[in-house]
């Protein structure tokens, strides 16, 4: 992963031995300059990411009014509450379903885009990326209006093919599915564009060789395309899993956690508890639950990616 950083210069030292002293000083100065250049970056990483993360752990051990140490009380109270387990279930259900759908629809669309003649691809790609470009909070507002119970344009379309009216945001399961629909709508173009870039990087000769060996189109997909794309697929799934799992905007705009707190995910529940109800320590505890889950996913995905990179070298 860090291979890019390692490409730094190492050639300066080979100039001449007589001037080793000056060169040494030069190198020392260069590393000082380099360090100075990364200070703003370090300030952001340490001051606005690492420190808040540690601070969140500290916050989660305080009592409600943040006056005394309360140990693991916040976590215990969360474990005892039904709402929290609903939130955990909904977060996992939402993230897994949405990412699987995005990955498979995106894969399908990337394939279809790859198949059509080159000159048409740009136009189609341009159209299909639009959901990704609109700020999610604003497009979700549009979806909210489409799901509106009194005048739902989706129900109107369903009525045309005589499907009964769906209470999109009123019923817990319908609301869960609505949230997934909106998330898939926003996120699929990202998968599509990533996969398309990956498909384009697979050398055509591999397919020709496979064809000559009599591979069927399924076999070409299974034994040529998928192994060549494995790294991009896993990185894209990882990115998307993190963003989906930590999603806030869609839930906030579409259902705001309702009906009966059944569509809250970790982020929106943490917001509800921590900012809106003013229980900052409990909110911090809720949002901290995202961390181990995401860290484990990231660990396994990144390990498999580095392993595959090493195999290829």
């Amino acid at each position: 992963m860090a291979a890019d950083g390692s490409l730094a210069v190492s050639g300066v030292s080979s100039v001449s031995r007589g001037r080793a002293n000056t060169m040494q000083r030069f190198a020392r100065r260069r590393s000082t300059i380099a360090f100075m250049m990364t200070v703003p970056l370090l300030a952001i990483i340490i001051g606005l990411v690492a420190y808040p993360a540690a601070y969140a752990i500290y916050l989660s051990t305080l009592n409600r009014r943040m006056t005394a140490f309360a140990g693991t009380l916040n976590f215990e109270l969360l474990f005892d509450s039904n709402t929290f387990w609903n939130v955990a279930f909904q977060s996992c259900f939402f993230a897994i379903t949405a990412v699987l759908l995005k990955a498979s629809i995106g894969f399908w669309l990337a394939h279809m885009l790859h198949h059509i003649p080159n000159k048409g691809q740009r136009k189609w790609r341009g159209m299909l990326l639009v959901p990704w470009v609109i700020p999610p909070a604003l497009s979700t507002l549009g979806w909210w209006w489409m799901f509106d119970p009194s005048y739902s344009s989706i129900n109107w379309l369903l009525a045309v093919i005589s499907v009964p009216e769906v209470p999109w945001l009123g019923h817990p399961w319908a609301a869960r599915i609505s949230i997934i629909i909106v998330n898939v709508w926003i996120g699929t173009p990202f998968f599509m564009i990533m996969y398309l870039a990956a498909l384009k990087s697979v050398p055509e000769q591999l397919y020709e060789a496979a064809m000559i060996d009599g591979a069927s189109s399924w076999q070409r997909l299974r034994y040529v395309t998928l192994p060549m794309m494995a790294n991009i697929i896993s990185i894209t799934v990882l990115f998307s899993l993190i963003v989906t799992f930590a999603n806030y905007d869609i839930v906030r705009v579409l259902t705001n956690g309702g009906p009966r707190d059944l569509t809250h995910v970790f982020a929106s529940y943490a917001f509800q508890v921590g900012i809106l109800s003013g229980n900052i320590p409990r909110g911090a505890a809720v949002s901290l639950f995202m961390f181990p889950i995401l860290a484990i996913c990231a660990f396994f995905v990144l390990r498999s990616v580095t392993r595959r990179n090493k195999e290829q070298m």
């Binding site: 969140a56 930590a246 806030y248 917001f271 995202m290």
Partner: peptide, 8 residues
């Protein structure tokens, strides 16, 4: 993700 850090 940003939703992990907004409370601290």
């Amino acid at each position: 993700p940003d939703t992990l850090l907004f409370i601290p």
